[in-house]
Design a protein around this nucleic acid. Structure first.
Lengths: 218, 218
DNA sequence: CCCCTTCTCTAACAGTGTTAGAGACGCTAC
DNA sequence: GTAGCGTCTCTAACACTGTTAGAGAAGGGG
């Protein structure tokens, strides 16, 4: 049976997990598919386009529950969406880097439309809803990027442990040492959750400012 | 006079502004310095290391006022730091991408130490101060990345205007259209400011929770 | 049967990061 | 002065990359 674009994209994602972004070469992907590298150009215009499709496939993995469940507070729902997005990005090796260079196609627009709708429904003006969703998205991307940069640093170069050790020896970084504490190293997941909490707190404050104040409400 | 590493890094940054990350090749950089490509390997171990040094040089551009001015609220000071960092990243072409792939050296540790110190001084526990600063950093990186991705999309491929136009024709994206409004396109600077405002609001709420409540409550 | 679309191939091109090894420059020690 | 030595730069090449031109196999419809 003839090779299809979906097949190319999906085995490209699987190959990315194995060999990382640097190892993802068209010849390698071709041999994975039992096909020459040139053949891939029949299914995909560019390597750039392939990466775009990959980024979209990864982002679409966890796209669900585009509306809050019944009785679920909107901030919990939004937090959950951000968390899923973060998981999708950190779940595949170097996926954040792929998404970073990505020029997003317009396939994500309906999804964003639904997100905005949910925030508009609870009282945010459309413009502000969009800006807030973008804010969450930027935070997610930056966090995933940093998470994977740390991971990449671990494989090659000096590990985090030695870095932490050197810090402990330095007496001129008291606050940093106090921040990391006795635990070996700061894990990026708790940092992500903290940041998400901050943004949600800001969003709720803003929501109260917008909706409670004008309408005299108890 | 012999070439120095600083010279290499700085003309590399200048070259990046001209030709972008894709155009930044070692041979091109060499010819810019009147030197062969192989020579650069005397001053720099890798291309990866060169990029790391460039990212650090760019990040260090706007590093100043590591403490709030007298009488300046801490959140305004922190906002300003984030804004300067954002400017440094968006001020150089593709700088966010360079910073994204960067394995950060430890030169930034003293800077982070000072930032934490300023937040600890106003009553944040060290751990939370660090996580909050990282949160701001991730948001800045993600925002800069998206800003430059949009810019790159503008040069090659279909422009934002046509994209916006197509959206306007679609009747199934009412909220998105309402969000963008009659203005041509959403500018990333105002989105950044909005996100920053959200994080600062969250931070202030958390600050109140930490410092005011315990006195009254427990 | 022949044409035509769809898919895949081989061969090559221009360019990349990177390395080995050979020099040129300037300083210091005899 | 000159021999030696570290510092810096060169040429030539290697292995690889994305990408393209053009040739060919497979199979269905006139």
């Amino acid at each position: 049976m003839a090779l299809t674009q979906d097949e190319v994209v999906h085995t490209a994602v699987r190959l990315l997990d194995d060999v990382g972004l640097e190892g993802l070469t068209l010849r390698r992907l071709g041999s994975e598919l039992g096909v020459s590298a040139a053949t891939l150009y029949w299914h995909v215009r560019d390597k750039r386009m392939l990466l775009d499709l990959m980024a979209e496939a990864i982002a679409a993995e966890h796209r669900s529950s585009t509306r809050p469940a019944r009785g679920q507070p909107w901030w919990e729902w939004l937090s959950d969406r951000a968390w899923k997005q973060y998981q999708a990005l950190t779940g595949h090796r170097d996926a954040a880097l792929v998404a970073a260079g990505n020029r997003s196609t317009e396939n994500s627009l309906p999804y964003i439309e639904e997100l905005i709708g949910s925030l508009v429904d609870v009282g945010f003006p459309p413009r502000e809803a969009l800006e807030s969703i973008l804010t969450v998205g930027h935070f997610v991307l930056g966090s995933a990027l940093e998470h994977q940069a740390v991971a990449a640093r671990g494989t090659a170069g000096e590990t985090d442990a030695t870095l932490a050790l050197r810090m402990r020896e330095a007496t001129d970084l008291p606050n940093l040492i106090a921040a990391i504490g006795c635990e070996s190293v700061l894990d990026s997941e708790s940092t992500f959750r903290h940041g998400l909490m901050l943004i949600m707190a800001g969003l709720r404050a803003r929501h109260a400012e917008l909706n409670d104040a004008p309408i005299i409400r108890a």
